[in-house]
C-alpha cells in the first residue's frame, strides 16, 4: 500500500492512466455503472422511447390517411358544387326565358287593347265632328235664308220661299260648305 499512498505525488510527473493500482477501483465502478445504465435503458428508457416513436409513426400514418380521405371528400364536394351551380344557371336562364315570354304576351295584349280603345275613341270623335259640321251647315243655310227673306222684304220684292231656298243652296254649294 506504500506505492498507492505516494501515487498522487508520482503521477504528477507521469501518466495517472498507467497507475495500475487504481485499475481495480475504476473497473469495479465502471462495471457497476454499465450494469445500472443497461438496466435503466433496457427496462425503462428504450421500451418507452420505442413505444412513443411507434405511436408517432402510427399517428402520422393515420393523419395522412385521414388527410387523403378529406381530400377525396373535398373533391367530391367541389364536383357537387359545380353541378349545383350549372343546374342553377340552367334554371335561371329557363326562368328568365319564361318571364320574358309572359311579359311579351302581356305587353301584346295590352297593346291590342289600347289600339282597340284608340280606334273606338277616334271613330266616336269623327262621328261627333261630322254631326257638328252638319248642324253648322244647317244653321248657316237657315241664317242665309232668313237674311235673304228679310232683305227681299225690305226691298218689297216678292219672292216665294222655294226660290229663296234654291238660291241659298246654290250659293252654299258654290262656297263649298255643303
Amino acid at each position: 500500500m506504500a506505492t498507492e499512498a505516494t501515487g498522487s505525488a508520482e503521477s504528477a510527473a507521469g501518466m495517472p492512466q498507467l497507475e495500475f493500482s487504481t485499475f481495480p477501483n475504476q473497473i469495479f465502478w465502471l462495471v457497476i455503472t454499465l450494469v445500472v445504465i443497461y438496466f435503466i435503458l433496457s427496462r425503462i428508457a428504450l421500451p418507452r422511447i420505442g413505444a412513443i416513436l411507434a405511436e408517432r409513426r402510427g399517428t402520422i400514418t393515420n393523419d395522412l390517411a385521414a388527410a387523403e380521405e378529406l381530400k377525396l371528400q373535398a373533391a367530391e364536394a367541389e364536383k357537387a358544387y359545380e353541378k349545383a351551380l350549372a343546374d342553377a344557371r340552367a334554371e335561371a336562364s329557363r326562368i328568365i326565358e319564361k318571364s320574358r315570354a309572359e311579359i311579351q304576351a302581356d305587353l301584346d295584349a295590352a297593346m291590342e287593347r289600347a289600339d282597340a280603345q284608340i280606334a273606338e275613341k277616334s271613330a266616336e270623335s269623327e262621328k261627333r265632328i261630322a254631326e257638328i259640321r252638319e248642324s253648322a251647315v244647317q244653321s248657316v243655310s237657315e241664317v242665309a235664308r232668313d237674311t235673304a227673306s228679310e232683305i227681299l222684304a225690305r226691298f218689297d220684292a216678292k219672292a216665294d220661299a222655294k226660290t229663296v231656298d234654291a238660291a241659298v243652296d246654290a250659293r252654299l254649294k258654290e262656297g263649298g260648305m255643303a
Binding site: G7, N25, F28
Partner: peptide, 28 residues
C-alpha cells in the same frame, strides 16, 4: 496530467477496489 489522478472522495490516500473515488462520483 493532474486532472486525471484517481483520488478517494472522502480523504485517505489508499485506493482500494471498493473505495468511492472521483471515478465513482463522475460515473454516478
Amino acid at each position: 496530467m493532474d486532472q486525471f489522478i484517481v483520488e478517494p472522495l472522502f480523504g485517505g490516500d489508499t485506493v482500494h477496489w471498493y473505495t468511492p473515488t472521483n471515478v465513482t462520483l463522475w460515473m454516478a
